[in-house]
Amino acid sequence: MMSKLPRPFLKWAGGKSRILPQYVPYFPKSFKAYYEPFLGGGSVFFHLQPQRAVLRDINAELINAYCCVQKNVSKLIELLQQHAVNHNQEYYYEIRSRQFSSNLERAARFIYLNKTCYNGLYRENSRGQFNVPIGRYKNPTICPEQLLIAAAEHLQNAQIEVGNFDLVLTEAAADDLVYFDPPYHPISATSNFTAYSRSAFGEAEQIKLRDTFSKLAYQGVKVMLSNSDCDFIRELYKDFAIVPIAANRAINSQANKRGKISELLIVSY
């Protein structure tokens, strides 16, 4: 059944597609509006197919890509097909170094780099420049036409915008569903990757997110959150239901260190 549902059109580090079956028992039976303030690949949104959704992220290039899929997917597909025809290592670094002025060209660049960079990782340097090296793919799917068309259909009723996660405090009401998938708290020095953009997401941000979670829950909002399984996160959310989830560690340069790792799913209801 799940394979027939709309799926993410982006590769996304920490994406939830593979572990969604473990989430399904914990989705609420019903809810009104849906909010996802850390959008990323959007796996949960595409699975739930809510009638009304507010999708946000602080990554302006990511949000621009979603908006272009929503509003002009046919032209976006044309631009991606051009990238696919020209793709090689030299072309990758040429496109990575270029800045485009139109929203559609920016979106096509974003998706092209996402499909061809290392592990679908998104990383910016201090100047806000994407700096992930090319991935080792023999034949990457640069233009997933059917995925894009299906995504466009299911994004039509969504409000998509750049914004911080705490904006949801003034919008979500009782019986709405909010799903938080923030940058994970590092469980070791080598896993300390929180620089999803120029803005780091450290302990202070994790505490602010917990406070936001708690306020929403107090207001009767149904809240779900994913994060790493560590003492810090368990202590932050000790007043809520905590469910261990078995996930694959995808980002590691050494293949023998990729494997099952415990993550946490936290729910307020």
Rank of each mutant, 00 (worst) to 15 (best):
L104G: 14
C117L: 07
S102D: 12
N139Y: 09
G120W: 02
R123C: 02
T141G: 00
R109S: 03
F130P: 01
L104E: 15
R136S: 11
T116Q: 06
Y91W: 14
G135R: 08
N119R: 06
F110S: 00
N119Y: 00
I134W: 07
T116G: 06
E90N: 12
Y91N: 11
G135S: 09
Q129L: 08
Y118W: 08
C117S: 09
F130M: 02
Q129V: 05
N131H: 11
N114V: 04
G135W: 05
R136V: 09
G135E: 06
T141H: 03
I111N: 00
K115C: 06
Y122G: 02
R106L: 03
R106S: 03
Q99D: 15
E124K: 06
N125T: 11
Y122R: 06
S101N: 13
P140M: 14
E124M: 12
R136K: 11
P133M: 15
Y91Q: 13
I134C: 15
L121C: 07
Q99P: 10
Y91E: 13
N114D: 08
Y112T: 05
G128P: 01
F110R: 03
V132G: 08
S101C: 09
C117D: 02
N131A: 14
C117K: 01
Y91M: 12
E90H: 11
Y122D: 03
N114S: 07
Y137R: 15
L113H: 01
E94M: 15
S102R: 12
E90Q: 11
N139G: 07
P140G: 13
P133S: 15
Y122T: 07
